[in-house]
Each structure stands twice: as structure tokens, then as C-alpha cells.
Amino acid sequence: MSPRSAGASRGRTAQVRIAGVPVRFRASWFLVSGAIVLLFGPQVQRIFPELGVLAYVVALGYAGLLLLSVLAHELAHALAARSFGWPATEIELNIWGGHTEYLAHRATPVKSLAVSLAGPAANLVIAGLGWYFSELFEVTGVTALLVEVTVLVNFMVGVFNLLPGLPLDGGRIVESVVWGATGSQDRGMRAAGWGGRVVVVLLLSGLAALVISGLREVSLVVVVVAVMVSFFLWQGASENIRVANARLRRPS
């Protein structure tokens, strides 16, 4: 998800430091990991019946790969911000993925754009490297499955975060472009917030079309997750619009 400026958050359960940046885990992240194990354990058992209960250990590997993918995304944001002299105060991982908090001094559209692109770029690079090495070494079995998951997860995280609306990284890209064109970061934020609302409408419309048409079976889990994510995106987009409008109404 997109970076945000430093601020307090609650409900944290664990903390480590990576590359000098505090990384905090909310309890909700562990709930996500448990859900992944329960959902994908039976799937792994069907693919590799000889594994038995060890299939759930492989499913735990799915959760670990998602964790590393999100962490790589957020660390890329933090290190990009640091390269501009913007200290990263923390990375938080939660049910929605994660976010990076940093202090942006003398921000410009170009610098903001670079920091926003760093996260998705890291995931797409990992996906590309995973695909390349899987083709090079012809891995098989459980290893091949985990490599495939690594490629797929990083590709999806990278592409999804490039959608053009806040609170996704693509929204920061929209903000930077409008900011550069108008000279107003607040106008950029408002435009990106509306972009986020459009993204939500398109996502839900696409999901509804699939369910109604019946051309492709859509599981209840996918529907629930999509609705939850859409709600989160709508809330984030609306908050950015509210903040931008409040700033634009201030006397100059």
C-alpha cells in the first residue's frame, strides 16, 4: 500500500528492526496467516496427497511468502524515502498488507513519484527473477509450487498497487502528476482520492459481472475478501478527499 506520513497507530503485537527501520506486526496479520493455512492446506493436499498433514506446512509457506513480498514492498518505500533524506519511522504489517511511515522534508512531485514506484517495482523485480530462475533450473514438486506462488504473489501485489487511486501507490502517482501540473499537492491528493473511488467501483462491477454471468465460478471467499478490500480502499480514498478539501478551503 501507499506510504503515509508518520503518526501513531494502535494494537501492535510485535516489533523487529530491519535495515534500521522498526517493523511492527498487528494481530490481524497473524489472523491472515492462519486463514491462508486453513484455505490452502487442503489445496496442497489435493496436489500432493503424499504429504498428508505436511501440506499445511507448505500452506504456511504461502503465508510466509506473502509476508516477505509485502515486507519487500514496504522496505523499498522506506529505502527510497531514505535516499531523499526522509527518515522512515516505521513499517506496519496488518490485515490489509502494510504501510510505511516516513517524514517527508521538502517534498516534490518527482521525489514522491519515485518513492511511490519503489514498492511495486520491488515486487515486479522479484516476480521476474522468480520466473527467470524457475525456467533456468526447471524446479519440480513442492519447490516448483512455492516458486510459482512467489512469482504470482509478487506480480499481483505489484500490479494491484499500481491501480490509479489512493490509498494505493498508483494513487500517489496520480497525485504526483496532478501536483506537478497544477503546483498543488492538495489538488493532486483530491484527484487521486477520486481515482481510488473509481477503482473501487470498477473492481466491484467486474466482480458482480463475473458472479452474474456465471462464466467463471467465483468462491464465496473471493467475494468476501474483494468486498472487504473495496471497503478499505473506499474509506482510504474518502479520507484523502476529505483532507484535501479541508486544506484547499483554508485561506491562502
Rank of each mutant, 00 (worst) to 15 (best):
V53T: 14
V44A: 08
P49C: 09
I47C: 04
G64K: 03
A107Q: 14
R46D: 12
A55Q: 07
A118M: 12
Q43Y: 14
A104K: 13
L93T: 01
L75Q: 05
L60P: 00
L103E: 15
G41K: 01
P109I: 08
E101C: 12
Q43S: 14
H77G: 02
A72M: 03
H105T: 13
E90A: 13
A76D: 08
R46L: 13
V110C: 02
L103K: 06
L93E: 03
L68I: 08
L113I: 05
A81I: 11
P87S: 07
P87C: 08
V115I: 15
A59C: 10
H77E: 04
A107K: 01
A76P: 04
R82A: 11
L75T: 01
E101V: 02
W86E: 06
A114G: 02
G85I: 09
G97R: 01
W96D: 05
G85A: 11
E90L: 09
G98L: 00
A114W: 10
L54V: 10
Q43E: 14
V70A: 04
R106P: 03
G98M: 04
H99P: 01
L66P: 01
G41H: 05
E74Q: 13
P87M: 08
F84M: 09
P49G: 12
Q45D: 13
P109N: 07
G52F: 15
A59D: 02
S69E: 04
N94F: 15
E92Y: 01
L67V: 00
V53P: 10
S112I: 07
V70I: 14
A78D: 10
T89P: 06
G41C: 01
F84A: 11
T89M: 03
L66V: 10
L54W: 13
H105F: 11
Y56R: 09
P49E: 06
A59G: 06
L79D: 04
H77T: 02
S83P: 06
L71T: 03
A114P: 01
I95V: 09
L54K: 05
T100D: 07
R106G: 08
P87H: 07
V110D: 03
L67E: 03
V115G: 08
E50G: 15
L71N: 03
F48Q: 12
A78F: 09
W96F: 15
G64T: 04
G98V: 02
T100C: 13
E90C: 02
A104G: 07
E50Y: 14
A118R: 04
H99F: 15
R82F: 01
A63I: 07
H73M: 09
V115L: 11
A59E: 02
L79W: 12
R106Y: 04
L67I: 03
I91W: 02
V53N: 07
G41N: 03
A63C: 09
A107N: 13
A104S: 14
A80I: 02
P42L: 11
L67P: 00
A81L: 08
R106S: 10
K111R: 15
I47T: 15
A80F: 11
E92D: 10
L54S: 08
G64D: 10
A80H: 08
A118W: 07
E101H: 13
I47W: 08
A114V: 15
A63T: 03
L113E: 00
A114H: 09
E92N: 08
A55H: 09
E50P: 00
L117W: 09
I95Y: 12
F48S: 14
E90S: 13
S112A: 13
G85T: 04
A63L: 04
V115R: 11
